[in-house]
Design a binder for these strands. Structure first.
Lengths: 332, 332
DNA sequence: GTGAAAGCGCTAACAC
DNA sequence: GTGTTAGCGCTTTCAC
């Protein structure tokens, strides 16, 4: 920077200002600095800036995995929204482990992030204290929170499953099974199970819950689950899968066996992934706002940072519900 | 850190050493420092460390998009491999634009990354000079490079398409069409087209190239492309799609029209995504090493960094070909 | 094995 | 609108 300053015939601080607050520098000087920067190929060392200003321009995000298209979509939208405001994204995946999340967060905090974006609302106890101590904006995503660390944006997984279950019943399906994943692995999946149970209770019916045989939801696990349901002496009339990918596999399995969908087995999924429309018959499912969650998180971080870090009004709701949408297609 | 040092009754530098090179600190002192850190909740400020040591512990990665499962897989594997060695990943997506890539890279370099991972081998001219000036490890991914900036890891998209085209011919298909994306958008896609053309030339046949009607490859675009092929007075016998997702759509379109696959139209894809196995009939496709690319890039960065940043031996090949695999299933 | 001094490259605070 | 001074919190270097 000293180099650039010398070339432009100004002080170092003026170079800094030309870069960060150009409107406070006269146009001629601004131009001389620009030329000097170009001539030298100068790239500011942001570590030094961070050290002095206590503003890093980094946002830390932790997701369970990037392999699932759905979180990748959220991260992509988040990165895009932040980039537009000069913020950079530090990401890591926790592999669905809250202990890993806490450990990753601790290391990321050393980077002095200006904000943190987490997935879900269930965290190791130290996560809350670490973040409170920092007093930076925090956004929890993909779930609604009764008591968010700071702010949360998502939708009600429970309500979505509840409503879909009722919708399946309204279509005349009586014996409705739910096919999920082990609850300890995926909190959002277990919330869906809760919604299903609540709906069945309300309908005065008996819940019928099966589990996929893999932790990572795959087409194959859905196929096997469907086969298992069909092999029962008295198979259900409808199966509500925790995820479109598994539901898709189930449709395939039926097709191969000549079992008509929805005639003999109605099938519903969750997510409205691309595969849902591609299925034959197309999947009845729940559309969830993956990209919108990322965009909203980005917008919210940017707003808080622009507002000089002050906490939101007490009146402002701290949890934003982006909702979901039942998409009734032909599979159920 | 001064706080922790006081509590532990040692100098600040000893705290630093206990954290970074514990083996150089006596066990008793190490334990006292550990206790003091725990008591205070101390998290080191990495910006200060970076400033002094010129080692940030950050690796910068730029991908075209995270929405495509395939790059997300590479990034996930990369993050995992780096995390195991205490390196953090700064990511951004360029939206397939090399100008955006250059601009993002410039900003990322301000963060003093210890290494950079790029997608592809075609970059804006300033990218090469910026990176050469820094003399840090650079890995270009997803393609082979004649003259990598530093090192490249991927496979030959061209050769993969060439071999698949020959394999389709060997299966008895004569009129083989290729369905791709506009070459200016995706370099790797256009390399596949080149491979197809070369194979057709060698077979003494006329190349027959169609384009998908969307930039982002979707199931719907594949469906429409298949419909267009079938609507021709003299449809091809086989269609080789640049991507499994589109190929899957094509299979669906045929199924809906009662067109037998592969009887009346053989269909091949590219990628061996999960959807390929789920298709009915399952897709003949090319398996590509997405996660392995990420793992290899991570390993290589870690090695170079451990080796104190020295350049690799002149003898070491600078491009690693991870290969691909033809997966002949029932769709062609 | 431990410590003291110095300084990495910026920007906040204050002056003019 | 521009400059001066000081110092952010570490780690390097050198000493013991």
């Amino acid at each position: 920077m000293a180099d650039v300053a010398r070339r432009a015939g100004v002080g170092a601080i003026t170079v800094s200002r030309a870069l960060r607050t150009p409107e406070r520098v006269s146009p001629e000087v601004r131009e001389r600095v620009r030329a000097a920067i170009e001539a030298t190929g100068y790239v500011p060392n942001l570590a030094a800036g961070t050290l002095k200003s206590r503003r890093s321009g980094i946002v830390a995000a932790i997701v369970p995995t990037l392999r699932s298209a759905i979180f990748a979509e959220t991260v992509d939208a988040l990165a895009e929204g932040l980039d537009a405001h000069g913020l950079q994204l530090l990401v890591a995946s926790s592999g669905y482990s809250i202990d890993a999340e806490a450990q990753i967060l601790r290391r990321m905090l050393g980077r002095q992030p200006d904000a943190v974006v987490l997935t879900g609302t269930r965290h190791a106890p130290e996560v809350r204290s670490m973040l409170r101590a920092r007093a930076i904006p925090v956004v929890e995503t993909w779930e609604l929170a009764d008591d968010p660390i700071d702010r949360a944006v998502g939708f009600s997984n429970r309500d979505a499953a509840y409503r879909m279950t009722l919708a399946l019943a309204a279509r005349g399906h009586r014996r409705i099974a739910f096919v999920g994943t082990p609850p300890e692995v995926e909190r959002r999946a277990s919330q869906r199970l809760d919604g299903y149970r609540a709906a069945m209770r309300e309908l005065g019916r008996v819940a019928d819950v099966a589990m996929l045989d893999e932790l990572g939801v795959t087409i194959g696990s859905g196929e096997r689950a469907a086969a298992a349901l069909l092999a029962r002496p008295d198979p259900p009339e409808a199966a509500f899968f925790v995820n479109d990918v598994a539901a898709f596999g189930a449709v395939q399995a039926c097709q191969r066996r000549g079992v008509s969908v929805p005639g003999r087995l109605a099938i519903a999924g969750f997510g409205d992934f691309e595969i849902a429309r591609a299925s034959n018959p197309p999947l009845t499912t729940v559309r969830i706002p993956g990209a919108q969650i990322g965009r909203t998180a980005a917008r919210w971080v940017v707003e808080r940072l622009a507002g000089d870090g002050e906490a939101p009004d007490e009146g402002t709701p701290r949890t934003t519900d982006l909702g979901f949408e039942l998409v009734m297609r032909d599979s159920a």
